[in-house]
Simulated scan of single mutants.
Amino acid sequence: MSALRRIALSTGVSLDVAVEGDPGAPAILFLHGFPESHRTWRHQIAALSADHYCVAPDQRGYAGSSKPEAVADYGIDRLVADVVALADALGIGRFTLAAHDWGGAVGWATALRHPDRVERLVIANAPHPLLFQRALIDDPAQRAASQYIRAFRDPGIEARVAEMGLDGFFDRSFAPHVDPARVTAADRADYLAEWGQPGALTGMLNWYRAAPIVVPAMDEVLARPAWVDAAFPALEMPVLVVWGMRDRALLAAQLDGLDAVVRDLTVARIDAGHFVPWEAPDAVTGVMREWFGRGQRSVRAE
């Protein structure tokens, strides 16, 4: 990919942004999750920029982008506002939004709040907010798999990472969740360089701290929030959900019930782990291309 652009947004932050393709072509905005960067979607950008305008920011708190200090600066309202402000800054009206992991949380929220801007939504291993909160209450397996969120919210985690070093953090917290054959020495160096930017570790962790999702302890009996069982707005635009079925943090049961909150749903189940955009890049790109072309609900990559 070409060099990153630095783009100042009306939300008060400046983001490093990968931009590829013809600005006159249909736009795709790509959002990464933890603990990554625009590089999450590098394979899809390389393939799809031939006929799409591809825009992939390092979101606030990550890599070289702005890193506000307050936890509140990472609330979902601010993150959604960044997406719309980035589209505005580049003169993009309606766009396809493709989003992974925490970027997917922003993707769901942006589609719900700005259906006038999000023409299509592609979600990769990112649970729907309603279904995820229900699972954290009702599903012991998902609750157990999500206990790391509680650890990442701990105010002492930065000190523990400093003690083990970023190399140790890579080996203990990240490496167990990825396909080692897909992570080169250059990839590792890129991760460590991004995480080592001043304020980056706290910025990335503040996404967890600011999120409203409640993650009960394993033995905790949680008072059930009323909104979990109330009516929830369904998305009307076409939605493609791509899921790496070997994800150990976000279990495949998160696919259950999506048809109740998405009117026009396509689900692609892929033999990969959590980081499916680069663990199975050809499969993900192929599914996206087929879906773009057909607009049908039966696309699958098993």
Rank of each mutant, 00 (worst) to 15 (best):
residue 31 L to D: 12
residue 210 A to P: 04
residue 211 A to F: 13
residue 80 V to T: 14
residue 52 H to L: 08
residue 127 P to L: 11
residue 248 R to M: 09
residue 204 M to N: 12
residue 78 R to D: 14
residue 169 F to C: 11
residue 129 P to E: 12
residue 104 G to N: 03
residue 148 Y to K: 04
residue 207 W to Y: 15
residue 204 M to H: 04
residue 28 I to H: 04
residue 131 L to Y: 06
residue 296 Q to C: 08
residue 198 P to I: 09
residue 171 D to K: 11
residue 208 Y to E: 12
residue 69 E to G: 13
residue 182 R to K: 14
residue 265 L to C: 13
residue 85 A to I: 07
residue 9 L to T: 06
residue 141 A to V: 11
residue 222 L to G: 05
residue 163 E to M: 04
residue 154 D to R: 09
residue 233 P to G: 08
residue 296 Q to G: 02
residue 8 A to L: 04
residue 141 A to G: 04
residue 248 R to F: 05
residue 145 A to K: 08
residue 240 L to G: 03
residue 73 D to P: 10
residue 288 M to D: 02
residue 260 A to Y: 01
residue 51 D to M: 00
residue 179 D to I: 09
residue 92 I to C: 03
residue 79 L to W: 08
residue 252 A to E: 15
residue 22 D to C: 05
residue 44 Q to I: 01
residue 137 I to P: 01
residue 52 H to R: 15
residue 300 R to L: 12
residue 223 A to R: 12
residue 8 A to E: 15
residue 118 V to H: 09
residue 26 P to I: 04
residue 154 D to V: 08
residue 218 M to E: 14
residue 220 E to A: 15
residue 239 V to D: 01
residue 245 M to F: 05
residue 72 A to W: 02
residue 120 R to T: 04
residue 268 A to V: 10
residue 100 H to F: 10
residue 294 R to T: 15
residue 243 W to T: 07
residue 223 A to G: 13
residue 113 R to F: 03
residue 97 L to K: 06
residue 287 V to G: 09
residue 15 L to Q: 13
residue 290 E to N: 00
residue 243 W to R: 03
residue 147 Q to D: 10
residue 194 E to H: 13
residue 35 P to E: 13
residue 108 W to T: 03
residue 145 A to N: 08
residue 274 H to I: 10
residue 97 L to H: 00
residue 204 M to A: 15
residue 215 V to M: 09
residue 181 A to G: 15
residue 264 D to W: 06
residue 182 R to H: 03
residue 99 A to F: 14
residue 25 A to M: 02
residue 235 L to I: 08
residue 226 A to C: 06
residue 87 A to W: 02
residue 204 M to R: 04
residue 96 T to A: 05
residue 153 R to T: 03
residue 229 D to K: 06
residue 205 L to D: 12
residue 62 Y to H: 12
residue 292 F to R: 01
residue 172 R to I: 00
residue 31 L to S: 09
residue 179 D to Q: 11
residue 147 Q to I: 06
residue 1 M to H: 11
residue 72 A to F: 04
residue 240 L to R: 01
residue 254 Q to L: 11
residue 135 A to P: 07
residue 40 T to H: 05
residue 235 L to R: 07
residue 26 P to W: 01
residue 288 M to K: 00
residue 84 V to E: 14
residue 253 A to G: 15
residue 9 L to W: 01
residue 67 K to A: 12
residue 10 S to N: 06
residue 2 S to K: 12
residue 298 S to N: 14
residue 169 F to D: 11
residue 252 A to M: 08
residue 226 A to E: 15
residue 134 R to H: 01
residue 240 L to E: 07
residue 250 L to P: 07
residue 221 V to T: 15
residue 144 A to V: 00
residue 110 T to P: 04
residue 91 G to D: 08
residue 285 T to E: 00
residue 29 L to K: 03
residue 22 D to Q: 04
residue 115 P to E: 13
